[in-house]
């Protein structure tokens, strides 16, 4: 009786879902870093793309609307640098308002702290979204 070796999904790096090529993986990850949801759209995951685009966009909008501060890439200190990195994770949702001079921030505003949390978490969530795009592209999840 002929036997065939069983492919170990962990060893092959996939869990039974079709992976895409390296150029498309790279394009999807870079796209997700620039525009939240674009990476999923490039991979044909339209429901996720719409949810990520709307949710992260809304979080940044609320953050700026309620007097949150968009930290500039000036790296005055480690804390300021980390805040910038967290916020810049949102891609164009950070860079467009920052280039337009929005998000100056008002520390005396009642909602300043909450608004900043919206801005930080929007960027950090988009970093998770980029990892999700990579996993989908590599065939590790549907």
């Amino acid at each position: 009786m002929e036997t065939r070796p069983v492919q170990d999904p962990e060893a092959t790096g996939t869990l039974g879902f079709p992976p895409v090529g390296t150029p498309k993986t790279l394009a999807a990850c870079v796209g997700a870093a620039i525009v939240p949801g674009l990476g999923h759209a490039l991979l044909g995951k339209w429901d996720r793309a719409a949810v990520f685009f709307c949710s992260i966009g809304l979080m940044v909008t609320i953050g700026i609307w309620f007097d949150g501060r968009l930290w500039s890439p000036d790296f005055d200190g480690i804390v300021a640098a980390l805040k910038f990195v967290a916020e810049a994770g949102a891609g164009v949702f950070y860079w467009i308002p920052w280039l337009q001079g929005a998000g100056i921030g008002d520390p005396t505003a009642y909602t300043y702290d909450y608004a900043n949390v919206f801005l930080y978490v929007a960027g950090l969530l988009n970093m998770l979204v980029i990892v999700d795009v990579f996993d989908i592209a590599k065939g590790r999840k549907p």
């Binding site: 996720r48 990520f52 949710s55 809304l58 909602t111 978490v121 969530l125 998770l128």
Partner: peptide, 20 residues
């Protein structure tokens, strides 16, 4: 109200990342 809005948006993104 802000905490609830934050929770809704964050939960939505995480649910879509973690589950199918």
């Amino acid at each position: 109200a802000m905490m609830v809005v934050f929770s809704i948006l964050t939960s939505l993104v995480i649910a879509f990342i973690a589950k199918n």
